[in-house]
Design a protein around this nucleic acid. Sequence first.
DNA 1: CAGTGAGCGAGCTTCCGCTTGACTT
Length: 760
Amino acid sequence: MGENLVIVESPAKAKTIEKFLGKGYTVKSSFGHIRDLKKKGLGIDIENGFVPQYEISADKKKTVSELAAAAAKAQTVWLASDEDREGEAIAWHLAETLGLMPERTRRIVFHEITKTAILEAIENPRDIDMNLVKAQQARRVLDRLVGFELSPILWKKIQPKLSAGRVQSVALRLIVDREREITSFEATPYFRIEGTFLTEGSKRPVKAVLDRKFDTEAEARAFLEQCIGASFHVASIERKEAHRSPAPPFTTSTLQQEAARKLGFSVSQTMSIAQRLYESGLITYMRTDSMNLSSLALNTTKEKVTELFGAQYSKVRNYHTKTKGAQEAHEAIRPTYVSNMEIEGTTTEKRLYNLIWKRTVACQMADARVEKTDVAIASDRFAERFLVSGEQILFDGFLKVYIEGRDDEENEEQAVLPKMEQGQPLRSTGIAALQRYTQHLPRYSEASLVKKLEELGIGRPSTYASTVSTLITRGYIVKGDKPGVAQTCCELYLKDGQIVRTEKKEMTGAEKKKLLPENIGLLVTDFLAANFADILNYGFTAGVEESFDKVAKGKMRWDKVISDFYGPFHKEVDESLQDREHTHAERVIGIDPKSGKPVIARIGRFGPLIQKGTADDPDKQFVSLNKGQLIENITLDEALQLLSLPRTVGHYKDFEITTAIGRFGPYVKYNGKYVSLGKGQDPYTITEEQAVALIEESLEKSVKKVIADFPESGIQVLNGRFGPYLKKGKDNFKIPKKKDPAALSEQDCLDIIAKAEKKK
DNA sequence: CAGTGAGCGAGCTTCCGCTTGACTT
C-alpha cells in the first residue's frame, strides 16, 4: 500500500492514473456520487432552512467502506473528482463521509489524463471550493423539490406512478408543442419551375430553378406558355472562392446526433458502445460537454495528418465550447491514440470508433477551398431568371476524411457546370412546372431532442439518454414511424412547344423513428402548463442556472436561491391541490349515425378508449385506441372504424371467426384461440378465406411446436422464438447447448430444471 | 398473451446527476 490515496470518479480513469503515478500512490474510484438526499421522503428539512438530509446510497455502501479502509492506511488523501459542480460536491461528500482530516487531505483536478497534467495537478493542490459545493446542493435540492412535489399531484389528479421534473417535463413539452404545431400545419401547394438548358456544343444539360414560385396551376401554365418560343442566354456568371471548415470534435450531444444520422444508433446504444470503447482505453471519456483537445492530442494528430496526407493538409485548431451551462470538466471525445486507425472489437464498436477517429482527425485538417459559380439564365420574354450554382473543389482539405451529416434530408446537389460565358445563348430542352407542398417542421428524433435540450441548457451529458427513456417508460411518448400524407402532385411539362399535364399521387412527409406524444403525455403537459407555467417555461433552467452561478461565485447564499423559488412554487402546489377534482381528458367526437348515440374519446383505467353511449347507457360499448391515435384529434370516422371491431368474418369448421385489435396488434379469433394477422392484412377487410388460411397455418405450426410432452411431471419440450426450451407450468428453462432437445428423457428434463432452480 | 373501462381504500409510486455492473430474455 502506498502512502498516498487518490480518489477519482471512474474506475477506468483510476487504472490509467495509477500507471502514471507509479509507486507510493494507490488510485481508487468512488463510482460517481456516494451520497444523496434520503431515498425515502423529501429528504429536505424545509422549516429549518432547507437543510439536506444526506445518506450513503445503498449501492455505494461497499465502495465507501473500501475507500474508508484505504484512507485509514494512507498518509495523504487526494480528492481528484472532476472539476465541475458535481465533481466538487463528490469531493466534499467524500471528505465528510470518510471523516478526512484537512491537513491530510488535498483537492486536485486534472484537465486531461496525461502524465504531465497529473503530475502538475499534484504539484498544485487546493482546498475544496465550498461555494461550488453549495451551488450543487442548491441544484440538487431544487430538483428534488420540483420532482417530489409535482409528481404526487399528478398521481392524485391524473394517474399513479407518473412523474414530473425540471428536465423531463420541459423535454416532454418540446415534443408535445411540436406535434401540435404539425397538427395545425396546413400544407399549401406551390409550383416550382425547373428548366433544362444546353450550351452550344455541349452535351451536359444544365438544370436551373426559376427565382419565382407560383401559387396556382393557372399561373404556372401562363408562365410556361410565355416560354414557348422564347430564347435564353446566360445573364451573369459569378465565381467566388469559399472556404469550408471542419466540424468541431465530438461532445456527448454531437456524438449522439452524428451516430444517429450516420450509423442509425439510438442515443442509449451510442452511449453503451462508447462506454465499452472508453473502458478498453480506446477513447477519452464519453460524457462531456467540452470541445477541448489536450496538447498531446493536438500534436499526435498533427503528426498523423502530415504522415497520411502531407503538411499542407494539417491545421492545428483548438475549440472552445459555446453551449449554455457547459462545465468542461473533461476533454472532447477523441481516440486516445490517433495512431490507432483500426481497432479490435464488434462491428458496432469499430463503426463508432471510426466515426470518432475521422471527426477528430478532420478537425485538425485544413479548410477545404471551393470555387462556387452562380449562373443566372434570362430570356427575352420575362424578367424572372433561372438560377443554378455549381461547386468545384479546388483543395479538398478535411473533406478527404469526413463530412458532417445533416438533419434535413434535402440534398441540394451541386452540379458540375459546363463552360459558360456571359451573354452566351442557351437552348431550352424542356421546362417543367412541378407542384410541391410546403412541409411542416420535422418531429424530434432522440438525437435532435438532445440537441435542442443542449441548446436550452437543459440536462447534462450523463442524463440525455436517460431523459428520453424516462419519457418512454412513463408512457408519455413512443418512438415510432409516421406515414406520410398522400398528395396529388401535378406536373406541367413544356417540350417542343407543347405543354403536357400529368398527375401523380406522392407520399410526402413520412418520418421514421421519431418521438410521438401519447395521450397521457399531452394530458400531463397541459396540466403542468396550466398550473406550473414557470417550470414548463423553456428558459426555466437557464434562469436557475444563473442563480447557481452566483452561488458558485460566492455572490449569493444557496438557501436564498431555494427559498426565493420555493415560496411561490409551493403556493402553486397548494392551489392546484385545492380542488380535489380529477383531471379528465374527455372529448365528444360526434354522434354515431346508426344508433344516434354519442361517441366519446377519453382516458380510462387501462388507457385511452372510445366509448359509444353515455355512462348511464346499459348497452354502452368500449374499445381501446390504437397506438398513435390521439384523443385530441381522432376523427369520428376513425372512432367508428374502431367500434366496428370485433367483426365476424365467417366460420371455420363449427366455430365463428372474429377479428379485432388486441395488445399485440390485430388478430383473428376462433374457438377461444388467437392468431396474429400477417403483413398487409387488416382486421377490417380480411376475408373468410384469408382468415381460414391463417388459422390452418398456425395449427400446423402448433403441431411442430411440441417436441416432447411429459404430462405426469407437467413438463413440455417446446420450439419457441429463440429455439427449443423447457416449459414447466409458468416457468421456462434453457436447454444446455450440447443436448439434443428431441432426445431428452423425462429425467433429463427434471435434472435441467433442478439445476436451474438451484442456481436461483 | 389478445379484454378490461369500478372498487373496500393498504402502501407505493416520483426528481437530476455522478458512476458501473448485475440481472434475464
